[in-house]
Design a protein around this nucleic acid. Sequence first.
DNA 1: TATTGTTATACTCTATAACTATA
DNA 2: TATAGTTATAGAGTATAACAATA
Lengths: 157, 157
Amino acid sequence: MIISSIEVLDYYRAMTNDDFDAQTIAGLLWRVTEQARLSFDMVAEESDLTPAQTRALLSLEGPSPMRGLAGNLGCDASNVTGIADRLEARGLIRRETGSDRRIKLLALTPQGRMVRDLVRSRLSESSPATTSLSDDERRTLKELLLKMAAMTEGRPA
Amino acid sequence: MIISSIEVLDYYRAMTNDDFDAQTIAGLLWRVTEQARLSFDMVAEESDLTPAQTRALLSLEGPSPMRGLAGNLGCDASNVTGIADRLEARGLIRRETGSDRRIKLLALTPQGRMVRDLVRSRLSESSPATTSLSDDERRTLKELLLKMAAMTEGRPA
DNA sequence: TATTGTTATACTCTATAACTATA
DNA sequence: TATAGTTATAGAGTATAACAATA
């Protein structure tokens, strides 16, 4: 017998307002992030990108050393070679060289910027924050997210 | 030049309270979910599990057909064979048979339940909702998450 | 015929370790 | 010596297609 999404959701709904313990909220947050993961993978696929390639594209705000990207992706530096190879082969990024000739800077090409913006806007459209919350609720959520995101300082993201 | 986490965060902090448009909130939510992903991967590794194996373990509330698990994981059914093989080899799950002999039900073993509970509690401890928010803030967050999670009805999770 | 799980195949992501070019 | 990127290797996740057993 399968425990369906709806049954699990009913379980959360049945909680009284006093149920705000860490495990409960963490479980709910996990459900939302799981939904976000599935949505993210679909958006990535629409642009013919793997999840890792998409995360890389979204991380490249400015030209960044490959090692820095590895930190953002949370993977070993050796992996970035292959990911960058594939993005470069598709013309979405470029390898640039600066004064320190050991370092290769990854930079978005104009086409890469276009794809990134498209992905970003599709992610925004499918975000549960967009589809399920009012303006007021989003304002409240933003404050809470800011506090939660503050913990990421000094950590990759 | 690298755009560090802190710089990006300052950018979000500089927004006025009127900045609650979908793209902004979606971006913030993405940052929090990215942090959650990295934290999830670390917790999984502490128990010698891959991310996919961990998601499978967390999804198995009750005995579930392999195809159902594939739906929860958001992957093709053929992948579940290998994932289940590895979890079974470690004694964390069991393949059971019901009346329909085509269907194999995956069920947690007692040891699997222990590992799942350990993972769940470590995830809860490291959740930004736990580490960054007060009781009141968690109460508010819970309401917002319930609305966002409601969109997952009828969808895998 | 349709469905469940499995197998075969190919590609990507992942970590580890050894290598090169540069500092 | 130390650091940035690459390569080689092995294991795991992923999709597609073909297959056996069961319904």
